[in-house]
């Protein structure tokens, strides 16, 4: 028996918005410690890694490990039926071919149940290597989304350049060039407004604008985003999911730009 109940059900709705444009289908690995999802996007250009720890759920039970292959378009349709303040429970029998979503209104006056067919997905087992990153940049997630959106008007690529002074985002195209520099912030009232650069070596890498913009669909999950870069390895874009876990996107640098 698997059962995971989340009072803050809106988090699950936001997680779905953050992955549904990148993945058509994915396997949810449910284990005693929590739920993991790891999958390459539809074009195999980026990797999505989602981690939801059992401690983040209000009730979590997983008697034996199960892998639930889900069609994310269908799952997204179902989660759209939940209100933002609904409590969401996912449950499945050990060897079931369906998963049930239960939405409870906060006053328990309305309870909706949706059953969805599971899929057998033959997905590659991928490992994420431990990497020491030369630059780790934390910035407000809304700011990052704005920069990606603004620069996508100029070209298909964004150059991210990190030095000890701060981080520079640039794009160039037919209409001209754009450069946005963010300096490290001094003292800020709210931690989430800070720009923090932790740099061992300066790094400059080029990434696809389209994918960075897709990653920013996770912005509602967290006020801060963390970018980790090293030469010749994929960029990591990480959003925390409340106290429950995180979503990480990995994107290979563009070659030959």
């Amino acid at each position: 028996m698997f059962e995971a109940r989340l009072v803050q059900g809106s988090l699950l709705k936001k997680v779905m918005e953050a992955i549904k444009d990148l993945l058509n289908e994915a396997s949810f690995d449910c284990a005693h410690s929590g739920i993991l999802l790891q999958a390459m996007d539809n074009s195999h250009v980026s990797l999505v890694s989602l981690n939801l720890r059992k401690e983040g759920f209000d009730k979590y039970r997983c008697d034996r490990n199960i892998v639930m292959g889900m069609n994310l378009t269908s799952m997204s349709k179902i989660l759209k039926c939940a209100s933002n303040d609904d409590i969401i429970t996912m449950k499945a029998q050990d060897s079931a071919d369906t998963v049930t979503f239960v939405f409870e209104s906060p006053n328990q006056e309305k309870v909706s149940e949706y059953e969805m067919k599971l899929m057998n997905l033959d997905q590659d087992q991928l490992g994420i290597p431990e990497t020491e990153y030369c630059c780790i940049i934390k910035l407000p997630s809304g700011e990052f989304a704005r920069i990606c959106r603004d620069l996508s008007q100029f070209g298909e690529s964004i150059v991210i350049s990190c030095t000890k002074e701060g981080v520079k985002f640039s794009a160039a195209g037919d209409i001209g060039t754009a450069n946005i520099k963010l300096a490290q912030t001094g003292t800020v009232d709210k931690e989430e407004d800070a720009v923090i650069v932790d740099m061992q070596e300066p790094v400059t890498l080029t990434f696809s604008c389209k994918y960075l913009n897709m990653f920013t669909k996770a912005t509602p999950l967290s006020p801060q985003v963390c970018l980790s870069m090293s030469p010749d390895v994929p960029l990591v874009v990480e959003y925390k999911i409340g106290e429950i876990g995180h979503i990480r996107y990995y994107l290979a640098p563009r070659i030959g730009d």
Binding site: M40, V45, L126, I128, Y250, A252, P253, R254
Partner: peptide
């Protein structure tokens, strides 16, 4: 696509 290959290699090597 070289970026695809790079990414797949990075995750498969581990």
């Amino acid at each position: 696509n070289t970026e695809q290959e790079e990414l797949e290699e990075y995750f498969k090597d581990s």
